[in-house]
């Protein structure tokens, strides 16, 4: 589904990703772990197309198409979704309007009919149960005044509505208490299907107790220094990152 080869990227003249190779197939969950500053979030942002980051080399083909040349909205329309580490507050735009706009834009891009507000309400009510969100959240401005947990649940709600083929969760566990973590992970698990894939970017192993990965990759200094199965995450939990950094 996603084939990343020798990807290099940076921000403001500083190279952060120094050659990433990663292959992700449909139905798989990959965890990308690593210490602060290792480039985990950069990888997530670059895949989603954040213009603040510059691609310096390499490629990322998604379903046979070069992803890195596409505008962020085209990537989203083709099925890429990034759950933000810091979801953006947009006072003045209601969550309902935002979600429906996104849903319809993606449908339009796929040549499907747009849905009207009433039909959309049916669609979304179901998805909101998944992340245990109250329908009053729909009429609030996007993320404005949301608690940390509400913001992350709102990200998963968007994911549930947009049904991406590739979901990238960027530090979705940061700032969550155990209940919120359980809800968020439950939502992600419920959305897993044989034809979609998930990248879980995280610093801690904690989230991986709930979203069990097929593969774990350790990122350090802009490179993947170790890949393994889910047991690698447990080893990191026990030993920290230092032994890997030393080895690298």
């Amino acid at each position: 589904m996603l084939d990343i080869t020798a990807l290099r990227a940076g921000i403001a003249e500083r190279e952060i990703l120094k050659g990433i190779d990663l292959n992700i197939k449909a139905g798989e969950v990959h965890a990308v772990m690593g210490p602060n500053g290792s480039g985990k979030s950069t990888l997530a942002q670059v895949l989603a197309g954040n213009p603040a980051y510059e691609v310096l080399g390499g490629s990322a083909t998604f379903l046979g198409e070069e992803l890195l040349e596409l505008e962020p909205e085209i990537r989203a329309q083709k099925g890429v979704f990034l759950a933000f580490q810091y979801p953006v507050e947009i006072p003045g735009v209601t969550n309902a309007y935002f979600l429906r706009s996104a849903y319809n834009e993606i449908r339009k891009a796929r040549g499907e009919e747009e849905v009207d507000p009433l039909d959309f309400l049916d669609i979304i009510e179901d998805r909101m149960k998944l992340v245990e969100m109250d329908s009053s959240m729909l009429n609030r401005s996007v993320n404005a005044g949301f608690s940390g947990g509400e913001k992350k649940r709102n990200e998963i709600l968007q994911m549930a509505v947009l049904q991406p083929k590739l979901a990238i969760l960027d530090e979705t566990d940061s700032g969550l208490d155990i209940d919120a973590l359980r809800i968020v992970a439950g939502g992600v698990n419920a959305l897993r299907r044989p034809d979609n894939a998930t990248i879980v970017v995280t610093h801690y192993q904690r989230l991986l107790n709930y979203i069990v990965p097929d593969f774990v990759h350790v990122l350090a200094n802009g490179r993947i220094v170790r890949s393994g199965g889910k047991e690698l995450a447990l080893e990191l939990e026990e030993r920290g990152y230092d032994w890997l950094l030393d080895a690298a």
Partner: peptide
């Protein structure tokens, strides 16, 4: 630009995203 990227990352094209943000600014 962060808000613009956020909207675009959800499949909303630049033109509509700018309209939404403009509207939000005025709201």
């Amino acid at each position: 630009s962060t808000a613009l990227f956020y909207l675009k990352s959800r499949g909303i094209g630049t033109e509509i995203a700018l309209r939404l943000l403009t509207y939000a600014f005025a709201a």
